[in-house]
Amino acid sequence: MNDILNIAGKKFNSRLFTGTGKFSSNKLMSEAILASESELVTVALKRVDVENEQDKMLQSITKPHVNLLPNTSGVRNAKEAVFAAQLAREALGTNWIKLEIHPDPKYLLPDPIETLKATEELVKLGFIVMPYIHADPVLCKRLEDVGAQCVMPLGAPIGTNKGIKTVDFLEIIIEQSNVPVIVDAGIGSPSHAAYAMELGADAVLVNTAIAVSQNPVQMAIAFKMAVEAGRMAYNAKLASIKKHAEASSPLTSFLN
């Protein structure tokens, strides 16, 4: 129905990426993720018991169509991030890494300098790097230059559910990018997700809004539909807002 998303050669039918945090139970998390039809689910390495193959949370999301995307949440600089990524690769058998470096534990805002540094290093080490960043168009191009396979600019501060507050910058990022743009953080409702997709985002990542809803499974389905609708609207090309042309003296009469 909708077109297929390709990141680093891997194909995704679903443009909704989800997370594993903040759910009230592993069972509910598993059901919500299944209902969302998401094919990429991020998991904080710090929450996984890497020594224990029977880790309950991991087990509950191990499904054939669900790819695990370990994230480095909790690290404060590039050095820690590279270490965490290597640990994740070993423990979970994937070279995909969602790079989150937030030295500030309150707002969890990403550090652009450390993120660029870590991305460059991780790409050299063979990782598929998905960096979580501010909606900074220059940073996105710099990340692309060092080999990031996509960029994940935030729509609003993480966990706030405020929606697409960075729209002007996201539009520039989407216009300029040669890699997929995934709006990460801040998406609080299906309408926000649909809006991001209408702008031309390649995918969105939603966690809190699903996990903290009164009914995570229903909400997961609502997000799935919103992302599909937004993508379809983008492909179908939105009708534009009518502007009235101002009448003034003719500019092309010299041609007659």
Partner: peptide, 10 residues
């Protein structure tokens, strides 16, 4: 539409 294009372009 040349005249309209010219106005917008200007």
């Amino acid at each position: 539409y040349l005249e309209q294009m010219a106005h917008l372009s200007k």
